[in-house]
Each structure stands twice: as structure tokens, then as C-alpha cells.
Design a protein around this nucleic acid. Structure first.
Lengths: 210, 210
DNA sequence: GTTTAATTGTAACTTTTGTTACTGCCAAAA
DNA sequence: TTTTGGCAGTAACAAAAGTTACAATTAAAC
């Protein structure tokens, strides 16, 4: 744990804090597709992302989903922060997008460290800032862009997160995350293919240039 | 300033903090429609809302707007918080929805107080939580609801904020904030009127029951 | 009082998105 | 091998939202 922690957080956290994290944190491996947090859950520990990626989803009353953003190496879940402190239930669902490693911090420490370590405070504030910014980008996407542009953004994002120009998703899965229908996704993907920007295969999409 | 501060924040902040706020904060009156923050601005002080309401808007590359949420009495601007700390430019525009009174806190104090006062930390975290929640509601609206439902929510919200069942807005103004066209707003408002839920006048809308 | 500009109402039309239905294809299971 | 179920392609249609155009009304400016 020490190495992975230092690699990702040494330049952010002061040494005493690193030591404390090592003391109370527990390492957790999550397989791709595994659920970390469900809507309505009480959250009792806070994740620090060491490797992999986690997707954060919102759901409406009908069970329809919408992808909000991804968490990556060095990130933490701002929603969890506030849930912990405010003792409220989770508003979102968190699912591992890739095989992921996290360090779990008990929430009691949260409160303690925000008083004690300036580097921790900065980290927490920066996390909030990053998440707010990503939420704004999500809002931009759905408010200001058409579905074809949203789809392109989605594919670009996915490529960046997985670091792979082949995306292993079905049209239906993409449709869920963009909150549209499979037929619409198929239609738009076909158009991108005819423009030579992607190639379509069963269960996967190869990105040529977007 | 002392009275208005105590009225709104006495139950949140410890006394020593109240004293400090009185020392360094400056009272500011803002007229309805006046702009507080423009997109791209560097923000050098943080507002505590004493009375009135402020609307927070997002804009896209074409200059199209979208209402994100309102700030009310007892709120602060989470965006500003992160802008101050991170030294980044504002992602949003803030305009007084009503005549509004705020206390401006210099940003240097922010950092100091988060280390010093637990009540301040809690206030800041709660603000973040509230704003994230409101952003989620905004996302829900635009992702999961049709324009007719969004319009109803908008009117309800406006009624709540202004505490007045008469809304003094033109259809064009509403269209801007919902990021749609005037014709669409007129159409949907007319439908609501024919259902007996509102009454339409020039420059104003009377809410009967929504 | 007349002119001007802003506001609202409405029709007709287009575009975008969503829905239904059916097809062929492929891969895993029986 | 045959069957089954999931996946993708496509047409035809429906609904929602956006656009253009113009008329009628009201308020403000001259």
C-alpha cells in the first residue's frame, strides 16, 4: 500500500498524513463492473483512487440512468465526502469502469484531518472543485449539445479513461449511459462509421479519429 | 451588520468567528438585475447571503444561457469558494434575482478560517453539498424531464424564491433561462393557462395552482 | 397623438429524438 | 448440430422541440 500511496499522493499529502492513512486505510480491489455505492446507501468510508476508474451515475424515478463523470487515479468521491459529513444517503451510483484499486478511509478521520492537515483540506477542496467542474461539463453536454455531439464526447472520454481506442460496449450500454435509446445510438454510430471516424464490430467500437 | 449576521448565521458560527466576520467583512447591497460575477472573472472575495436571492447561470460558446440554481439567505457560492482557493476563473455568472444584501469576505480569511474554526469548515462543506445537490437537480431536469415539466418546475421555483405568486418575467426571459425559444415557452404557458393553472398577462404570470 | 419598440399569440414547417417492428447475424448453450 | 438469446441494422412512424413568419396588442418614447 505504501508504494501505491506514495506514487499517487506523495506530492499532495504531508508525510505525517501519509503515515496516518497507512495506519487506518484499507486497500480494496474492485473488479470491473462491480458496484461500490448504490443510490440511497449510507456511506461510511471514503475512497482514494489508486488505479483504475469509477463511473458515477445518476438515476431518475423510472430507473433511467445517466453517466455523470469518471473518477480516476488520484481522485476521490466528492459526493461521498458530503454524504459522510452530512449523514445523508448517496444521490448517485458508483460502478467500477475498470479493475480498480482504492484505499478506504473511515469517515471519522475525515473530520479530524480537515482540522489537522492543510494538505488534506486542499485535497478535499480541490476534489470538490474538480467534481463541480465535471458536473458543469455534464450539464453543458445535455443542455447545449445534440445527441451526435454527446456521443462523440462519450467515445472520446471512454477512450481516454480506458487508454484504449477499442471500446468494448454494446449500443444498448451506451444508450443507457447517455439516457437515450439503442436505436438512436446505432443510427448515430453508423453515421460516424460512414464518415470513417470509427469502425463497428459486435460488442466493440474501434475509434479511428474523432 | 451585526444584527443581520446574527439572524442568519448565529446558530451556525461560533462567537469568535462572528467577531472576525464583523471585523473583515464588508456589507454590500445589490440591486435586482445587477451582475456580481461574470464568466472568466477572478474572484477575490466570498459572499455570505444575508437577504434576497442570486441566480447562477451557465453559458455556452454561442452565448446561450441556462439557469443552474438560486442562492438564498444563509447560502454562499460554492463556485466562488473553489475559485478563490484554486485561483481559477469563474465558470458561472451570478446575477441578483432580487434586491440582495451580502457580506463579502476576503479570500485570505477563507483559508485561515478553515483551519481555525470547525463551524466554518462545516459551513463550507454543507455549502458544497447543497450546491452539488442542486446541480444534480438541474441535471435531472434537463436529462429526464420534458420542457413542459421543466417550465412548471421553473415557475414553482421562481414563486418560492420571490415568495410571490406573480412572476414578473417575459416569455423571452424564461426562454433564455431554460435554454429554449420564446415560441416554445409561449406555447407551453398557453397550455398551462388553458388548464387553469396560471393566468397570463403582459410581462407577468400569475400562478393559480401548479 | 403618433410613432416606435417590445411583447405575445399562432400557424406552418423542419429537425431532432424517441418508438415500434422486424430482420439477419453471431455466439454460447443444449 | 440445433436452438436460443443477445446484438446490430434499418424502415416507418410519432412526439417533442426548434424555427420562421406574421399579426395583434400594449407600453413607452417622441
Amino acid at each position: 500500500m505504501l508504494n501505491s500511496l506514495k506514487e499517487n499522493f506523495a506530492h499532495i499529502f504531508e508525510e505525517a498524513l501519509i503515515d496516518e492513512i497507512l495506519e487506518v486505510g484499507t486497500l480494496k480491489e474492485i473488479k470491473e463492473g462491480e458496484k461500490l455505492i448504490e443510490i440511497g446507501d449510507y456511506v461510511r468510508s471514503m475512497p482514494l483512487l489508486i488505479s483504475g476508474a469509477i463511473k458515477i451515475l445518476r438515476e431518475d424515478d423510472n430507473g433511467d440512468e445517466l453517466l455523470l463523470y469518471f473518477l480516476e487515479r488520484g481522485d476521490t468521491c466528492a459526493m461521498t465526502l458530503t454524504c459522510c459529513l452530512g449523514q445523508t444517503r448517496s444521490e448517485i451510483r458508483a460502478i467500477a469502469e475498470l479493475d480498480t484499486t482504492i484505499i478506504m478511509i473511515p469517515i471519522q478521520k475525515m473530520e479530524e484531518w480537515t482540522g489537522k492537515y492543510k494538505s488534506w483540506r486542499n485535497f478535499v477542496f480541490q476534489s470538490y472543485h474538480a467534481r463541480l467542474t465535471e458536473m458543469l461539463e455534464t450539464i453543458d453536454s445535455i443542455a447545449f449539445y445534440n445527441m451526435d455531439e454527446r456521443l462523440v464526447k462519450y467515445l472520446q472520454n471512454k477512450q481516454k479513461i480506458t487508454n484504449d481506442s477499442i471500446i468494448n460496449s454494446t449500443h444498448q450500454e451506451i444508450a443507457y449511459e447517455l439516457h437515450t435509446s439503442r436505436v438512436v445510438v446505432s443510427r448515430l454510430l453508423k453515421k460516424l462509421e460512414s464518415l470513417g471516424k470509427i469502425e463497428l464490430y459486435r460488442n466493440s467500437i474501434k475509434i479511428i479519429s474523432l
